[in-house]
Amino acid sequence: MTRASQDALSRTALSVFRLNGQFLGVSEKLAEPAGLTAAWWQVLGAVLPEPLPVAGIARVMGITRQSVQRIADLLVREGLAAYEPNPAHRRAKLLAPTEEGRAAIGRIDPGHAELAAALARELGGQEAFDDTVRVLARLSEAMETVGANFRAPTAGADPDDVQGA
Rank of each mutant, 00 (worst) to 15 (best):
E100Y: 03
R59D: 15
G156C: 10
I63S: 11
A157N: 03
A103S: 13
L74S: 10
Y83G: 11
A103R: 12
E144Y: 00
A157G: 02
E84I: 07
T145W: 06
A72P: 08
A148D: 11
A55E: 15
R59Q: 14
Q69K: 10
S67K: 13
A81C: 11
A113M: 06
R70F: 06
A58H: 11
Y83K: 09
D130G: 00
M61A: 10
R138D: 12
G106A: 14
R70V: 11
E141L: 13
I71Y: 02
E122D: 08
A142M: 04
T64P: 01
D109I: 15
D109L: 15
S67W: 06
E78I: 02
A152T: 12
H112A: 08
K93E: 12
P87A: 07
L139W: 04
A137K: 05
A104Y: 05
L139A: 08
H112F: 12
I105Y: 10
A120G: 07
A104M: 07
P85G: 03
D130P: 00
L136Q: 09
R107E: 14
P110R: 12
I108Q: 14
D158N: 14
L119I: 11
Q69N: 09
I71F: 03
R138P: 01
L115V: 13
R65T: 12
L74E: 14
E84H: 12
G156M: 08
I105A: 11
Q126N: 00
G111N: 04
L119P: 00
H89D: 15
M143R: 04
I71W: 02
V60M: 08
L74H: 10
G124W: 03
M61T: 09
F150A: 09
R77F: 08
T98S: 05
T98H: 03
R138G: 13
L139S: 05
P159D: 06
G147R: 00
N86V: 02
